[in-house]
Design a protein around this nucleic acid. Structure first.
Lengths: 199, 199
DNA sequence: AATAAATTTGACTCAAGAGTTAAATTTATA
DNA sequence: TATAAATTTAACTCTTGAGTCAAATTTATT
């Protein structure tokens, strides 16, 4: 048996899980009110904790912001690596994009835009990761242009366009609101696909 | 002759122009580094001025942020009111969107996203204006769905998608960079149109 | 030359919030 | 029951940056 029944008693594991929860909660706060309009005390009290307890899990506020970014990119990387067989670049991209939206609406992970509040070192790391992901997506677009499923045009502009829609998602999406995550995912993926599909 | 040769000597006029310049410069700074990562001293020194001089033109930092939003919405309203005869909703929307991108890349006006750093009162005003603009655009989409130029689907989701691309524009566009504003405008308008066009 | 507007200088106050600390207390583990 | 981990309490320090102010200086207008 692989299931570890003792897991809930594994303190390191509990610590890691709680730390993740802190990051995720902070991410939601940053998303809703903005990094600088959210104090460590806010984050703590939203978790039913005290500021001092937060500092038991994280070094400082900048680290929290950094980890929020990491979390989002980790999730995106996992979706990018999901290797299946696709008819063509367009299909591949459509499903990937759908997964991105699903992930952002369902997981509590926020794709933050505030890169300028990171320390210089972390900012570089985050931008590097973002570019890496972007370039993987651009590669899929080029693939689609080669196989004839995606229309011509600057691949970077193709990507900037629909990734913008994705980045804006967090600004307005509210999981207690009118739209269901899955519906948005399907709608957005369709609109994305049609925008770049070959005639 | 309507041209007022004395204009450069009209002090009220000069004051207003300089105030506008302050807002616009601040908008560019906020866009590049974020509202909270930009100090009043930064804004001043980017204009070759001193902080005290800034306060000769504006009441406080919050007012500057508010005016940045107003400036962008003023510009969008002007484009929205540009009434011409269109074949159908899709054409109308395509041209409008193209104008939006042109405006954002050419005018030095920034479409800021940081609404949470506004005072409660100003935040309400800004969100009200944003919703008003959004609903005008949604109306055009519905128009297009009636006249058969735009495919079915929730009009709000159609709009959220391509307005996201617009909001994200400021985050990456650099007027000294690789892409020409006009090229982006044409590309984005095309991609927007194809995403919602009827089959 | 006289006046008013625009701007600089530099020092200052004030508030908010990050981050720390030590001691006490609660909770889980063995 | 003894121990170690998790968390609270509450007070504290420090930094940053907004906003103010008064006096001096420069620039434009008449």
């Amino acid at each position: 048996m692989d299931i570890n029944v003792k897991e809930p008693f594994d303190r390191d594991r509990q610590f890691a899980l709680k730390r993740q929860a802190v990051i995720r909660a902070a991410g939601l706060d940053f998303c809703k009110r903005g990094y600088h309009n959210t104090s460590m005390t806010d984050i703590a009290s939203n978790l039913g904790l005290t500021k001092a307890a937060l500092y038991y899990y994280v070094k400082n506020k900048g680290e929290v912001l950094f980890e929020c970014h990491q979390q989002a990119y980790d999730a995106m990387d996992i979706l990018l690596e999901k290797k299946l067989i696709w008819k063509n670049g367009l299909e591949k991209l459509g499903d990937l994009y759908c997964d991105f939206v699903r992930m952002l609406t369902a997981s509590g992970i926020s794709l933050l835009t505030d890169v300028n509040s990171l320390s210089e070192g972390n900012k570089i790391k985050v931008l590097k990761r973002r570019r890496k992901i972007e370039s993987k997506i651009i590669k899929i677009v080029k693939q689609g242009q080669s196989d004839g499923s995606i229309r011509e045009g600057d691949p970077r502009l193709h990507v900037f366009f629909f990734m913008g829609a994705l980045n804006w998602l967090n600004a307005w999406y509210d999981n207690s609101g009118h739209f269901k995550g899955e519906d948005i995912a399907v709608h957005f993926a369709t609109q994305m696909r049609l925008g770049i599909a070959a005639a």
